Computed example of a mutant assay.
Amino acid sequence: MSDGDHGAAPGAPGFPLPRRACDAHCHVFGPADRFPYAASRRYTPEDRPKEVLAALHARLGLERAVIVQASCHGTDNRAMLDALRWAPERCRGVAMIDDETSDAELGEMQAAGVRGIRFNFIGSLGGAPDMAVFHRAADRVRDLGWHMVLQLQGEGVRDMAPVIRDLRMPVVIDHMGRVDPAQGTGGAAFRTLLELLGDPRIWVKLSGIERMCRAPFTAALPFARALLRAAPDRVLWGTDFPHPNLATPVDEMELLSLLPAFAPEPADRQRLLVDNPAALYGFGTG
């Protein structure tokens, strides 16, 4: 496979999509009869197994994926790992772990393509974890070369900033920190996020636009532009498919089609969709 952009095709996003483009934030759910949802879950999604995710990526023209463990499956990572093993060359994963996760399980995850762990700090999804468990988890995966993924919301970015700075490992902040667009790019939470990006260990996903505002999503675009300018080599993009806990349906092609609005240059999109996820997740060059 050669480098370069794909030409536009029917149903394509309307701009040349670089080869090996990656959806760096997506989920698989179930199927529940094989991979049950956690008893402690705050929501029960419809099944969206690996075959459904693969069909979406084929429609969008995305060749790689980072499958992120969602809270509805808790620390039972089997559905995510099953998806990684199904397409090992094109998929990587982010797990959820706790003190009950064994060293052997971590080794199996590493072999399957897991490269990070995720903790959620969103109140509606259960709120902040036990911070002792959080730090023990970070200590266990640091030597594996993994990173920490944090789901924060608004002021949570400011609250967690000291912890993030002290983690001694790469940190990825989901969904632009889920800041409130009504506060503008000058809001305190977003200013903190920009300040954090001054640290070369810290990354951010230019995803979750559909959680900040409704279509056509223009209110979220200044935030994505500012983050890309602040750290062009440490931004990622993802669909967040299948958009758990979002009441309004989303067309992922519409989300993909927004990229030129905040990443106008082909070089920007090459970094965002290909080079940056390859660097963080260790995708091959083929």
Rank of each mutant, 00 (worst) to 15 (best):
C22R: 02
R19G: 12
M1Q: 10
P181A: 14
G186P: 00
V179R: 01
R85D: 07
A24N: 04
L236E: 00
V133D: 02
H243F: 12
H147W: 08
N120V: 02
D251F: 12
P242W: 04
M212N: 06
A182L: 13
V149T: 09
Q270I: 03
G61H: 08
R78F: 02
T44S: 15
A230Y: 00
R214P: 00
A54Y: 05
R115F: 02
R269Q: 07
Q153V: 09
A79F: 05
M253W: 07
H57Y: 03
E63G: 15
E265S: 14
N245Y: 05
P216T: 11
D33E: 13
T285D: 14
L17K: 06
E63W: 05
M148N: 06
S71G: 12
E46N: 14
L273T: 05
I209F: 00
P13D: 08
V66G: 07
D275W: 06
A182I: 04
G107I: 06
I209R: 04
P162A: 14
M212I: 13
D76H: 11
L280C: 10
H135G: 08
A220H: 03
E105V: 03
E100W: 11
A231L: 08
D166M: 09
A12G: 15
R165V: 07
D47F: 04
G14Y: 06
T239V: 02
R234I: 07
V179H: 07
I173H: 02
T44N: 11
L206V: 02
G282D: 01
L56G: 06
L60R: 03
L246V: 09
D23F: 09
R118T: 05
G123Y: 08
C72Y: 05
G208W: 00
G61Q: 07
N120D: 14
I122M: 14
N276F: 01
A279P: 11
T285W: 13
E105D: 15
R214T: 10
D139N: 12
M169H: 06
H135I: 10
